[in-house]
Simulated scan of single mutants.
Amino acid sequence: MVVIRLSRGGSKGAPFYNIVVSDSRNRRDGRFIERLGFYNPVGKEGAENFRVASDRLTHWVGKGAQMSDTVARLVKVSAKAAAAAPAAA
């Protein structure tokens, strides 16, 4: 099965995650098919802490890839924030 999940990088105490498409049998930080974006949970205020290529995400979900719970939550929160941002402007 193909999954869309987080792959951990960064150093101890300063995690950085890549959002990747990989085979579920591969290790978390192992081989992946495509990198879709990143998530930086400890990024500075005002910096871009989350980015995902939504067109590629839609492509993979359309092909049957399953998003992990965390990735699904992050995409949902970012979509809600993007919808609220133009209303505030």
Rank of each mutant, 00 (worst) to 15 (best):
M1F: 08
M1R: 15
V2S: 11
V2R: 14
V3Q: 14
V3R: 13
V3K: 14
I4Y: 15
I4S: 07
I4C: 06
R5L: 07
R5Y: 09
R5E: 11
L6W: 07
R8N: 03
R8M: 08
G10L: 14
S11M: 08
S11V: 11
K12H: 12
G13T: 12
A14P: 00
A14V: 13
P15R: 15
P15K: 15
P15F: 14
Y17I: 09
Y17M: 08
Y17S: 11
I19S: 15
I19G: 13
V20W: 09
V20R: 02
V20Q: 11
V20G: 09
V21M: 12
V21T: 11
S24Q: 10
R25V: 05
R25T: 09
N26S: 08
N26W: 02
R27I: 00
G30T: 05
G30S: 15
G30A: 09
R31I: 04
F32A: 10
F32Q: 07
F32E: 04
I33Y: 08
E34G: 09
L36N: 03
G37R: 01
F38P: 00
N40G: 05
N40A: 13
P41W: 11
E45W: 02
E45T: 04
E45M: 01
G46Q: 08
A47K: 14
A47H: 08
N49H: 04
R51V: 00
V52C: 14
V52K: 01
L57A: 14
L57C: 08
L57V: 04
L57M: 09
T58S: 14
H59W: 12
H59I: 02
G62W: 03
G62E: 00
G62R: 02
G62T: 10
K63C: 05
G64P: 01
Q66G: 08
M67W: 00
S68P: 03
S68K: 07
D69G: 15
T70G: 09
V71Y: 11
A72R: 15
R73I: 03
L74V: 05
L74Q: 01
V75R: 07
V75L: 10
K76G: 02
V77D: 10
S78H: 12
A84Y: 02
A84W: 01
A85R: 13
P86L: 13
A87I: 09
A87V: 08
A87W: 02
A87M: 12
A88H: 12
